[in-house]
Design a protein around this nucleic acid. Structure first.
Length: 197
DNA sequence: TGCCAGGCCCTCTTTAGGGCCTT
């Protein structure tokens, strides 16, 4: 039985996500790690890149390649084919009610990169059918607080009083979720900053 | 050898420039 005024769709679910890439050029870089978290449920994959990793990126992520192996701080990590990683991420997102992807500076960096690569595999339409919207915590934090800096490590130090191993995507998403919980932004502000691509 | 992104925000602004932020 349907009741007037009861929304047909469920609650939105925030899914915090992060990419580690081969570089900062959003038109050329490739994804080497894709992580997400929502509550206690996590997703993480490593991908052997189709292009070389910039030395600057290796310096900050600890990820390098040798032969056909991806190394994290010199130790081999298990990788999956890029298409499998993307499909796995879509499947992960499908398990949530109306997922909203949340990332730090995702409007400028993660979303364009992810969308470009999804499009290369003809997966963009399916992805956009699953994702309800996006939220950028960089833009959100700039509106909520007046601070000297808004980088994720600075925000973590400022609000959570701890440093963390930035540039491991799994740790980045975990701490971003923690930050968001500490901020408790009101729904008006969140809705103002929510966007679709 | 020298260069190597780019949109957004701030301000000593708007006929602009510099720094931030992501890897």
């Amino acid at each position: 039985m349907m009741f007037a005024g009861v929304p047909r769709s469920g609650e939105e679910t925030l899914v915090f996500f992060d990419l580690e890439t081969t570089g900062l050029n959003i038109y050329e870089c490739d994804i080497v790690q894709l992580s997400a978290i929502s509550g206690e449920r996590t997703f993480n994959v490593y991908i052997f890149p189709r292009c070389p990793i910039d030395p600057g990126s290796s310096r900050v992520t600890g990820l390098t390649t040798h032969s056909q192996t991806l190394l994290l701080h010199g130790q081999p990590v298990q990788t999956v084919p890029l298409r499998e990683a993307l499909n796995g991420f879509i499947s992960f997102l499908k398990t949530f009610s109306r997922p909203v992807l949340v990332g730090h500076n995702c409007k400028r960096f993660d979303c364009p990169v992810l969308n470009r690569i999804l499009n290369q595999f003809y997966l963009l339409d399916e992805f956009q059918d699953v994702v309800t919207g996006y939220l950028d915590t960089l833009l959100l934090s700039r509106e909520m607080f007046t601070l000297q800096k808004y980088s994720q490590p600075f925000l973590v130090q400022h609000f959570l009083q701890k440093s963390y191993g930035a540039h491991d995507a799994t740790e980045d998403v975990r701490v971003l979720q923690e930050l968001y919980r500490a901020w408790r932004p009101n729904s008006d502000l969140v809705n103002k900053h929510k966007f679709i691509l």
